[in-house]
Design a protein around this nucleic acid. Structure first.
Length: 815
DNA sequence: GGGGGAAGGACCA
DNA sequence: TTCCTGGTCCTTCCCCC
C-alpha cells in the first residue's frame, strides 16, 4: 500500500494518495504522499483522520483476536455453510441480461475544457481551494484528483487551474446524454449526472432485425443544432479528445472513422454500446466509457477497465466471469471502500480469488449481510435487475462554513437550511416524519441528532421546530462554552407513502398553509393563535356540514381536525370555541366529547367519558374489533370519519405521568419533555401529531395497538399541555415584547427571555395542579387492575414508546 | 429474539 | 488560510414486548 512507503505513515492510509482512479497509474507516489502529508499535518482535519484511522486499526485488532479464537471445527462448519450457499447462488446465477454501465470521462473537467479550449493543455480541476470535484488527466499526473482540497492540489501542481463548478451547465449536458440513454433503455437508471446503468437486452433483441440504415450515423449530422455558442469548441473536438486522454486505449469511433462520412454499427452488444458512445461524443463533444456485463456489479467494474474513452465486455459465460474475477482487486468493486479494503488486507485478502478462498473465515468474522455480499462478489454475481424509479429515502441539505460559535447565528442558519429543505421537499411533494440535525464541530467530529415525529412534515416551520430543539440540546450540552461548528445540515427522512399522505395531514396543513408564515418568533406565536382560531372556526363550520349529509374524504379530515380542536381546547379557559361542540356542564363526568373508540374506530358525537369508556370496555371484552357497537347510538356517517384519530405528542406525556402505571410516575420528566415538543407549535401549523394509519402496523400488529387511546387518560390531558402553550403565547404576543408574563396556571410572573423555560414552567404547573384536579374529577372508568383497561393503557404506552425514549434522552441531556 | 428508533459510520459520485 | 455535498445502506445500541 502506498502509505507503507512513508516512515511512520502506517496510520495514514486514509490521507495518502488514492490511486484507484483511472489516469493515476505510474505516479511517484512517495513524493506525492510526502507533499500531501506535509500540507495536512497538524491540521484539525488531519488530527481527526488520525483518530479515525486508529479506530479502524482497533477494529482490525479486535477482528484478529476474534480470528485467533476460531477453532478448526467452527471453520469446517462455516465452510459447509458457505458451500451450501454457493451452490444455491450458482443455481440462480443469471446470465441472460445485458447490463451496461456508462460513465462520462472526467465529466465536469471535460465540460469545462470543451467550453474553454485554452484549458485543454493545462492541468486543471473543477472545484475550489477547499475541495475539488474532479480533475483532468494532465492534473492527475501530478496526483491531483477528485475529493482533494484545492490548496493541497496547488502544492502538488502549482500551475493547476481551478475552475469553479457550474452545475447548471453539467445538468444541461447530462440531459443531452440521458436522451441518448433512453433510446437504448427507456428505464435506464441514472446514478449521478455523469453515470448510469442501462439494461439493453430488449434493445438488442429489436436491433437484430434493424436494417443497416437504422444503425448508421453520420459523423457531423448527429450533432445538435442548438449549440451555436459552442461551435468554436466543437470545431476543435477532434483535437480535444486525444489531448484529454493522451494514453487512452481509445476506441473512439469518431476518430477511427474520421475520414468517412458515416459509420455503420453492428447488432452486437459491443456495437450497440460503441454506437451509444459515438452518439454521445457527437452530441456533446465529450467521451464516455462503458462496461458491458451480465450484471450491474460486473458492468461497473468493466466501465473502469478501459477508461477513458473505452469499453469492455464480459460475455455471459460463467467461466469467463470467474476468470475475470480472479485477479480483480477487491477495492475495484463498488462498495468496497478504504476501510473494508484495509480490513480484508489484514486477513491477507487483496483480490477476489483470495476473497473466495477465505469465505468461511469471513463468514465467521463479518455480519451476515457483509459476508453474503463478499460471497456474491467472489462469484461475480450482482444485480441483474435495474431498479426503476426506486423511491427516495431521505432528503437533506447541509452547509460548511468558517467557525461559527454564536448561538443566534446558528439558529438562524438552521432556519435557512430548513427553508431550503422545505422548498426541496415541497417541490417533490414529500413529507417525512424524522428530522435529523447534523453537526460537525471545528475538530471535524460529526454528530447527528434525530427526532421522529408522529406525523410527517414538510414546511420550514415544522422542520425548524424540530431541528431547533435538537440544536438547542446540543448548544445547552456544552454551555457555557459555545458550540463551535463548521458544518450544519438538516435531513428529513421516513417519508410517508402516497397512500398515507392522502387524507389527513394534507388537508389540515392546507388550512394552515393558506397563511404566510411570519419570521419573528413572537409574531409567529401570535400568528399561530390566529391560525388556530381560524381553524377552529372552519372546523365548526365543517362540523355542521358533517352532521348533515356530506361524508366524503374531506369530512374525515374535518372530523380529525375537529377532534384536535376539542382535545386542545375543551379543558382550559378558552372554551368559547369548544362550547359549540361540547356541552360544558357543571358536573365533572357529564362533559360531552366527540371521540373515537380506539378499538372499533367508531366515532361518537356527544358522548361523556363514562359512556365512552364503557363502550371501549365492551369492545375489548368482545374483542370485536370490527363489530359495530350496539350500545351506543352512532350515526352511520360518523363511522366513516374515523380513519385517522388524532393523538398528540402531549398524549404520550400525559400517559407517561399516569398514576396507574408504576413505571410512569416520573412527574418531572414528563413535564420537561413537553418543552421541545410544545415549542414546535410556534408556527401555528398544527403540531399535534396523529396516529397515522401505517399499513405495516395495520397488517402486523394487533388492531388494538394501532389506534389505542384511552380518551379519558390521554386526549383530555393532552389538551392541557397543548393549549396552555397557545394561551401563553397569546399573552405573550399581546404583551408585545415584554420581558415577563404571567403563568396562566399559577398566576406567578415569569421571565419570557426564554420561551422554552416559560413553557416548561407552565407545563410543570399544569401537570402538577391541573392534571391532578382533572384526575380527581375524571376518575378512570373501572379500576386500574381491570385487565381490559390496563391492556389498553399498556399498549397506548407502547405506541408512544419511541417518542418517550427520545424525550428521555432529551431530558437527560437537559438535566 | 425481534422490531423499531437513534446514532454513527462506510461508501458512492 | 483552506479538506464538500447529498445520498444510501449497514451496524450497533437501546428499549420494549
Amino acid at each position: 500500500m502506498a502509505s507503507h512507503h512513508q516512515g511512520g505513515a502506517d496510520l495514514l492510509s486514509r490521507i495518502a494518495l488514492n490511486d484507484n482512479k483511472a489516469g493515476m497509474e505510474g505516479l511517484d507516489r512517495d513524493k506525492i504522499n510526502k507533499i500531501i502529508l506535509e500540507t495536512s499535518k497538524g491540521s484539525k482535519f488531519y488530527e481527526n483522520e488520525l483518530k479515525k484511522e486508529q479506530q479502524v486499526n482497533q477494529r482490525i485488532e479486535k477482528m484478529m483476536e476474534q480470528k485467533a479464537r476460531i477453532t478448526k471445527e467452527q471453520l469446517k462448519q462455516a465452510q459447509a455453510e458457505v458451500d451450501k450457499l454457493t451452490c444455491e447462488l450458482e443455481r440462480s446465477r443469471e446470465l441472460g441480461r445485458v447490463i451496461v454501465h456508462v460513465d462520462m470521462d472526467a465529466f465536469y473537467a471535460a465540460v469545462e475544457m470543451r467550453d474553454c479550449p485554452e484549458l485543454k493543455d493545462k492541468p486543471m480541476a473543477v472545484g475550489s481551494m477547499s475541495m475539488l470535484s474532479t480533475s483532468n488527466y494532465h492534473a492527475r499526473r501530478f496526483g491531483v484528483r477528485a475529493a482533494m482540497p484545492g490548496f493541497i492540489a496547488k502544492k502538488l501542481c502549482p500551475n493547476l487551474v481551478i475552475v469553479p463548478t457550474n452545475f447548471d451547465k453539467y445538468r444541461a449536458v447530462s440531459a443531452q446524454v440521458r436522451e441518448i440513454f433512453s433510446e437504448y433503455d427507456p428505464h435506464f437508471m441514472p446514478m449521478s449526472l455523469d453515470e448510469a446503468y442501462l439494461d439493453i437486452t430488449e434493445h438488442l433483441e429489436q436491433r437484430k432485425h434493424w436494417p443497416e440504415t437504422m444503425r448508421t450515423y453520420h459523423i457531423c449530422d448527429a450533432k445538435t443544432g442548438n449549440d451555436a455558442d459552442r461551435s468554436a469548441a466543437e470545431s476543435e473536438r477532434d483535437e480535444l479528445s486525444p489531448v484529454l486522454f493522451e494514453d487512452s486505449p481509445s476506441s473512439s469511433p469518431s476518430l477511427s472513422g474520421a475520414d468517412g462520412k458515416a459509420e455503420v454499427f453492428g447488432t452486437s452488444a459491443e456495437e450497440a454500446v460503441r454506437e451509444m458512445r459515438f452518439r454521445i461524443e457527437q452530441k456533446t463533444s465529450l467521451t464516455a466509457s462503458a462496461g458491458i456485463a451480465p450484471n450491474m456489479m460486473l458492468a461497473k467494474v468493466c466501465s473502469d477497465k478501459n477508461k477513458p474513452n473505452g469499453q469492455y465486455r464480459i460475455p455471459p459465460e460463467r467461466q469467463v466471469v470467474m476468470e475475470f474475477m480472479k485477479d480483480l482487486p477487491v477495492r475495484k468493486v463498488s462498495g468496497v471502500g478504504k476501510v473494508t479494503e484495509k480490513m480484508l488486507a489484514a486477513l491477507g485478502i487483496v483480490n477476489c480469488d483470495q476473497l473466495s478462498q477465505q469465505m468461511a473465515l469471513l463468514s465467521l468474522l463479518f455480519s451476515g449481510t457483509s459476508w453474503h455480499n463478499f460471497l456474491h462478489i467472489s462469484l461475480g454475481l450482482g444485480s441483474t435487475c435495474i431498479e426503476r424509479d426506486s423511491e427516495r429515502k431521505s432528503m437533506s441539505t447541509e452547509r460548511t462554513f468558517g467557525e461559527m460559535s454564536d448561538a443566534e447565528e446558528q439558529y438562524s442558519l438552521c432556519r435557512d437550511l430548513c427553508h431550503d429543505l422545505a422548498q426541496d421537499l415541497q417541490r417533490e411533494g414529500l413529507k417525512g416524519k424524522t428530522v435529523t440535525l447534523k453537526l460537525k464541530n471545528v475538530k471535524f467530529e460529526v454528530k447527528t441528532r434525530a427526532f421522529t415525529l408522529q406525523y410527517a412534515v414538510c414546511t420550514e416551520e415544522e422542520i425548524f421546530a424540530a431541528a431547533k430543539d435538537l440544536l438547542k440540546v446540543e448548544i445547552d450540552s456544552v454551555s457555557p462554552q459555545p458550540l463551535k461548528l463548521r458544518l450544519m445540515g438538516v435531513r428529513v427522512s421516513g417519508f410517508i407513502s402516497a397512500e398515507d399522505k392522502k387524507p389527513l395531514q394534507r388537508s389540515i396543513m392546507g388550512f394552515l398553509q393558506k397563511d404566510g408564515s411570519d419570521s419573528g418568533s413572537f409574531t409567529q406565536c401570535a400568528g399561530s393563535v390566529l391560525k388556530l382560531k381560524r381553524l377552529q372556526q372552519q372546523q365548526r363550520e365543517q362540523m355542521s356540514v358533517m352532521a348533515g349529509t356530506d361524508t366524503t374524504n374531506n369530512s374525515a379530515d374535518a372530523a380529525a381536525a375537529t377532534q384536535i380542536d376539542l382535545s386542545t381546547t375543551n379543558n382550559l379557559s378558552d372554551t368559547t370555541s369548544a362550547k359549540s361542540l361540547s356541552n360544558t356542564n357543571s358536573g365533572t363526568d357529564t362533559t360531552c366529547y366527540f371521540l373515537t373508540c380506539p378499538v372499533c374506530n367508531t366515532e361518537m358525537k356527544d358522548v361523556n367519558l363514562t359512556a365512552f369508556n364503557n363502550h371501549i370496555d365492551e369492545c375489548l371484552k368482545g374483542s370485536a374489533v370490527d363489530n359495530e357497537p350496539t350500545h351506543l347510538d352512532v350515526p352511520k356517517e360518523q363511522k366513516e370519519l374515523n380513519s385517522k384519530p388524532p393523538a398528540s405528542s402531549s398524549e404520550s406525556r400525559a400517559l407517561k405521568s399516569s398514576s396507574h402505571d408504576p413505571s410512569c410516575n416520573e412527574e418531572k420528566p414528563s413535564t420537561s419533555i413537553s418543552v421541545p415538543l410544545v415549542e414546535t407549535d410556534e408556527d401555528g401549523d398544527f403540531k399535534t401529531p396523529f396516529f397515522s394509519h401505517r399499513t405495516k402496523i395495520n397488517g402486523k400488529r394487533s388492531v388494538i395497538s394501532k389506534k389505542k387511546m384511552p380518551v379519558c387518560e390521554s386526549s383530555s390531558k393532552a389538551s392541557l399541555t397543548t393549549t396552555h402553550n397557545l394561551e401563553a403565547v397569546t399573552e405573550m404576543s399581546s404583551d408585545s415584547k415584554g420581558s415577563s408574563l404571567t403563568c396562566p396556571v399559577c398566576s406567578q410572573p415569569q421571565s419570557t427571555d426564554d420561551l422554552t423555560l416559560f413553557n416548561r414552567h407552565v407545563d410543570m404547573c399544569l401537570n402538577q395542579e391541573v392534571l391532578l384536579e382533572f384526575r380527581e374529577s375524571h376518575p378512570p372508568v373501572g379500576h386500574s387492575d381491570e385487565p381490559a383497561l390496563k391492556s389498553v393503557r399498556g399498549q397506548c404506552k407502547n405506541k408512544n414508546n419511541n417518542q418517550q425514549q427520545q424525550q428521555k434522552r432529551i431530558i437527560n441531556t437537559l438535566v
